[in-house]
Design a protein around this nucleic acid. Structure first.
Length: 441
RNA sequence: GCCCCUAUGGUGUAGCGGUUAGCACGUAAGGUUUUCGACCUUGAGGUCUCGGUUCGACUCCGGGUAGGGGUACCA
């Protein structure tokens, strides 16, 4: 089995492309097949080295390793030329100067549902001859058979006047030479498949098995666009998602088996995945569910590992104590710093929080808490809790009326990791300094 | 215009002629709680529509409707 993934390097790999890559990878890995990566670059304007690198980078981040590639189509232009000449010589393709307008005129004359058929000329673009009768059936692992009648098909242009190959010809030729057995791609290619099948036939080659994945839609049900939040792998990474969570989420976006499991680690995915069971309807990218799933994966990481990833993500070091006390409270890597950054960079400035919690009552409670904190020994979470609970009792206050002023004093914001734990991480001196600063303001 | 695909709660899915239509996210209420979160309990919410086939349709067939894709000397 040889499965190939061929993204068009027009820029970043978006989630739909990432899902296609994953499904290709899972299919190959499940059967012990070969996963081939090819770059769709018959239009070399689009496949800039930067674009290609972005794709590779996204695949690396998702940890989808390929066995062969990346193979460039541009590099195969001599071979394309050779094959083209063969089709021309065999009369299976012909040159024509017919333009899009000519095709339109032809249809007006012969009926809108009649495909264009041209005359051979000495010059012009190369078109493949489509038989007048019969039909081409696309056998698809996901959607079954789809029949296309030849009368509905235009003779497709397979090469430009300058001789360079066009997509529909190049993919088929390349897949033939690479002996690709499985092509898994987006549904936007379904209608092009009969043309590619016809190319295979003209070339006298055995076509691969196809599987067309439904396209992804945005939250509004319309076509997915950058407008709708995290559309690319790069953006998901920057938003603080874990690659293992993204892989799990993507796998379930349009696929499920009879088991109701939601959290499925990668090796389990490889075992259970089956391309035949992929859904036929378009799915919407639901970032809320990804967030939830990311939280699950985040909490499964050891504190050491999570610290490592957070230090890489934030570019800071010495995060471990802060990670230890915040790990239950974040869903993504990006949420860590806003929550725990105050431990390193001092209290955040939040006037609203100050006004609400450091009013007269709040300052009174804070002053009392300060004394309790100053005298706590040993300075650990357990002792601090006892000390502050005493303050609460003495003042006949609600716990929050004491804890929140302390929180605002040391963190600046009304949201933070546990108050006792935070104080412990800061240490007595720094805690008192911050409280005193709040008291004197 | 023509060709093609799709249709289960708000979202992702399970089901494959007979089920109280299951699970997960989200959501509502409650619990836990020093904030946030995490966690626990309970609830609301669905088979696009109209016909047909059948003793019986979410499931099979046809027409609508809606969404999507293709129709390039783009990929």
């Amino acid at each position: 089995m040889r499965v190939r993934f061929a993204p068009s390097p027009t820029g970043q790999l978006h989630v739909g492309g990432a899902r296609a890559a994953l499904y290709n990878w899972l299919t190959a890995r499940k059967e012990g097949g070969t996963f081939v990566l090819r770059i769709e670059d018959t239009d070399r304007e689009r496949s800039t080295p930067e674009n290609v690198e972005q794709i590779l980078d996204a695949l690396r981040w998702l940890d989808l390793d390929y066995d062969e590639g990346p193979i460039s189509q541009v590099a195969r232009s001599d071979r394309h030329e050779e094959l083209l000449q063969r089709l021309l010589a065999d009369g299976k393709a012909y040159r024509t100067t017919a333009t899009a307008e000519d095709v339109k005129a032809y249809k007006e004359q012969h009926g809108a549902d009649r495909g264009f058929r041209g005359q051979a000329e000495a010059e012009g673009a190369v078109r493949l001859r489509v038989p007048d009768d019969g039909e081409t059936v696309v056998h698809d692992l996901i959607r079954g058979d789809t029949t296309f009648r030849h009368t509905h098909l235009d003779d497709p242009v397979i090469a430009r006047s300058d001789g360079t190959a066009l997509y529909n010809f190049a993919v088929a030729a390349d897949d033939m030479d690479a002996q690709i057995t499985h092509v898994i791609r987006g549904e936007d290619h379904l209608s092009n498949t009969p043309k590619q099948l016809l190319v295979y036939e003209a070339l006298g080659a055995q076509p691969p098995v196809f599987a067309h994945l439904p396209l992804l839609h945005g939250p509004d049900g319309k076509k997915l666009s950058k407008r709708h939040g995290s559309a690319s792998v790069q953006e998901l990474r920057d938003a603080g998602y874990l690659p293992e969570a993204v892989v799990n989420y993507l796998a379930l976006l349009g696929w499920g088996d009879e088991d109701d499991e939601t959290i499925i680690p990668r090796d389990e995915l490889v075992r259970r995945f089956s391309i035949e069971r992929v859904s036929r309807n378009p799915a919407r990218f639901d970032e809320q569910k990804l967030r939830w799933m990311n939280g699950r994966y985040l909490r499964e990481l050891s504190t050491d590992e999570l610290t490592r990833r957070l230090e890489e993500f934030t570019g800071r070091t010495g995060l471990r104590p802060a990670v230890e006390i915040s790990r239950e409270k974040v869903q993504t890597l990006a949420e860590f710093w806003p929550l725990a950054g105050f431990l390193f960079d001092g209290p955040t400035d939040d006037p609203a929080a100050r006004e609400k919690w450091l009013d007269e009552d709040g300052l009174g409670a804070l002053a009392e808490a300060r004394e309790a904190i100053a005298q706590t020994d040993p300075f650990d979470a357990e002792q601090l809790e006892t000390a502050l609970r005493n303050v609460v009792q003495r003042r006949h206050a609600k716990p929050r009326d004491v804890y929140q002023p302390v929180r605002v004093a040391i963190a600046g914001t009304p949201v933070s990791p546990g108050i006792f734990e935070s104080l412990t991480v800061l240490g007595r001196d720094e805690s008192l300094r911050r409280i005193d600063a709040a008291l004197t303001k």
